[in-house]
């Protein structure tokens, strides 16, 4: 068997792939958090709960309406995104004039309520979601076998992240969004309906989380705690990448997934904490994060 650094190659590549998959989820979730923070100045603690809702909506679509995986990949983000729009319109928008801390507390409370409701209705043991048949099986890459679904997750997450980045950095809508992040009153004084832009931004960030939730459904079981498991690490990713940086959250998300995966190979005991160790080091040496701009 081929060995790399004294580790069997299939084990190394297997963990690398697992790391990339976790990284794909970190990237999609921290990207949404970054966009929302930039526009709303709110640290959206409900992000994990809305990610979980994405998975649940996909499960519900399949089990109640017989709507399969691929339509759910479009429909679930839309449905959860609309739910996010309603949350923003009715509750979150009341807090913009207050300190960040209030938004954090509110969304933290919302996440507890949402997760509690789902736990009450579905229990916490989790429900399986089958991998769609076209994505079942595995491909022999020569150096390892790659489960097709996992390859699909990494690929589609990368495409969605890049598309989001391109919309923000390369389109006129993105330019308006960036301008409103810098100076919302002036953009509104140019005739842009900024409150509506903020609402739609929140909806889009939530839709990204829900999309990640649908991708996650066949890998992790669909259960009310699946968001909580992710979100702590995701907040560390956001801190490391730099609050509000779009490219930073994508790159850092994937990179930290890989760092975590590699730690599982070389020093498994530290795999659950390595991200937080990195966070502490970054906070001590570059408090604005790797990609953060000086204020």
């Amino acid at each position: 068997m081929m060995m790399i650094f004294g580790i069997p190659a299939p084990l190394l590549f297997g963990q690398l792939l697992l790391g990339l998959i976790n990284g794909a989820f970190y990237a999609m979730l921290s990207l949404g958090l970054a966009i929302i923070f930039g526009m709303l100045n709110i640290i959206n603690f409900a992000h994990g709960a809305l990610f979980m809702m994405g998975a649940f909506v996909a499960w519900a679509l399949l089990n109640y309406l017989d709507i399969g995986y691929f339509p759910a990949l479009i429909l679930a983000p839309l449905i959860v995104g609309v739910f996010g729009v309603i949350l923003e319109k009715t509750i979150i928008s009341r807090l913009y004039k207050l300190d960040h801390l209030y938004g954090l507390l509110l969304t933290f409370g919302l996440s507890l309520v949402i997760e509690g409701l789902f736990r009450n209705a579905y229990g916490s043991s989790g429900m399986p979601y089958r991998i769609p048949s076209v994505l079942q099986g595995a491909t022999d890459l020569g150096f390892m076998f790659m489960p097709n679904y996992r390859g699909w997750v990494v690929l589609s997450a990368a495409v969605v992240c890049l598309a989001t980045w391109a919309i923000i950095e390369k389109t006129s809508l993105g330019a308006t969004l960036r301008a409103a992040t810098e100076n919302a009153p002036l953009v509104q004084a140019f005739g842009v309906n900024v409150p509506r832009l903020i609402t739609l931004t929140y909806g889009a960030g939530i839709a990204l989380a829900a999309f990640a939730g649908v991708l996650a459904a066949p890998i992790y079981s669909v259960n009310p705690n699946m968001g909580t498991n992710f979100i702590n690490t995701v907040f560390a990713v956001v801190v490391i990448g730099g609050m509000g940086s779009i490219l930073g959250s994508i790159v850092t998300g994937f990179a930290l997934g890989v760092v975590e995966g590699m730690t599982k190979v070389f020093y498994p005991q530290a795999s659950a904490t390595v991200v937080f160790v990195v966070m502490v080091i970054i906070l001590l040496t570059r408090p604005r994060g790797l990609f953060g701009k000086a204020a």
Partner: peptide, 20 residues
């Protein structure tokens, strides 16, 4: 505006095309 309000995260062309 008095402080000019040019956006640093936008290019010159994007600044020019920003107001609808």
């Amino acid at each position: 505006p008095e402080e000019r309000g040019i956006f640093g995260s936008l290019s010159v062309t994007e600044n020019l095309m920003l107001p609808p």
